[in-house]
Nucleic acid binder design. Structure first.
Length: 308
RNA sequence: GGUGCCAUAGCUCAGUUGGUAGAGCAACGGACUGAAAAUCCGUGUGUCCCUAGUUCGAUUCUUGGUGGCACCA
């Protein structure tokens, strides 16, 4: 660690609804820096209420990047996010020794920190074809095909998970080589330091916050927002908690009350899934959202230690 | 007040011809490098309302309570 000029990326993460937003503003102001949002759904400008995008007056306090920056009608994926963020970081680090990234999209965080294998972007027609075949021919046929094209990956993959099987087949077809031969699964080197700060709080308290946030979304107009996106419900991005449950209600499959309960339950489930992922990351320093002073101290101490 | 029905998991309920019980939802855990708020996998967490009795053995049958619901007054 002799590179004293290395900039630092602070990663503020935690489950949905834990209270990342307020703290991120404080941290960014304290270090006079900017915020990169790491949220795979707040990226899309059409989805605002249901993804809990912070209100305008909060966003205005600190420059934010990658919030409402894309459209659900375009195509986007983690690999593009990696490239876009690295690009943005390059220009931000030119003026700030420290940049804050905040969000809860687990894979997106990992990709910024560790990178992802260099593979071709998937052609949407090929994906549609394979999905159709999965539906018509069944998962056994697709498994058998994967076994032929990539026996190595066949033995590693979760054979019950159609998404994994389809993606492997896509890469085999697109590159003409087995998917497994192109997976390095090694972390890329970054030319910046990373400090990961995880926020968590008492489970029942977290659930209370999630539940009341859903009620708040409903009073702010989530139903209307979902109604306006209903025609595009087949889009991948709209397969999102808060929207798909309402689409179900629009279809007449359940009452509005049931849909709202389902949104709450699925949001809680998502929070649990996030915690499962974060739990196995040994680099995360865990705090309660109220421990702002301790968090600022951790960052400051870390910066001093590097300068020595 | 009388009669009838009900009481089993956090919730809604099933079940045991007497051998301490299981579904859905909720909850909990895990996998996951281009769909990731996606996708996939796993786990029953219980004074079977209380009491006394019959019985080798009661959550199940009987007595008496308690609570709830319905009907009749």
């Amino acid at each position: 660690m002799n590179n004293k000029s290395k900039p630092t990326l602070i990663v503020l993460l935690g489950p949905t609804g834990v209270g990342k937003t307020d703290l991120s503003i404080h941290i960014a102001n304290h270090f006079r820096t900017e915020i990169i949002s790491c949220d795979s759904r707040q990226l899309f400008k059409e989805m605002q209420i249901g993804t809990a995008v912070p209100e305008e007056k909060i966003l205005r306090q600190v420059p934010h990047h990658f919030i409402q920056s894309n459209s659900i009608f375009g195509s986007y994926n983690v690999a593009m996010f990696e490239a876009d963020v690295l690009d943005k970081l390059k220009s931000l680090f030119a003026i700030h020794p420290l940049v804050l990234m905040t969000g809860g999209s687990m894979l997106y965080i990992d990709v910024v920190c560790k990178g992802i294998d260099d593979l071709p972007d998937v052609d949407s027609e090929l994906r549609a074809t394979l999905m159709e075949r999965m539906k018509m021919e069944g998962i056994e046929r697709m498994r058998a095909e994967l076994k032929l094209l990539d026996p190595v990956y066949y033995h590693e993959v979760d054979l019950q998970n159609p998404v994994r099987i389809i993606h492997a087949l896509e890469i085999c077809y697109l590159t003409g080589k087995p998917f497994s031969s192109q997976r390095t699964r090694t972390a890329k080197q970054r030319n910046f330091d990373i400090i990961k700060i995880g926020l968590n709080r008492d489970r029942t308290e977290l659930y209370d916050r999630i539940n009341s946030r859903v009620d708040e979304m409903m009073t702010t107009g989530l139903e209307k927002e979902a109604r306006s996106l209903y025609p595009y419900r087949e889009l991948n991005t709209l397969n999102t908690v808060g929207y798909r449950e309402l689409f179900d209600y629009f279809d007449g499959n359940c009452s509005l009350g049931e849909a709202i309960e389902k949104i709450k339950a699925n949001s809680r489930k998502y929070a649990r899934k996030q915690l499962t992922w974060f739990r196995k990351d040994p680099d995360i320093h865990w705090f309660h959202p109220d421990q702002e002073a301790e968090i600022l101290k951790l960052i400051t101490d870390y910066k001093l230690q590097i300068k020595d």
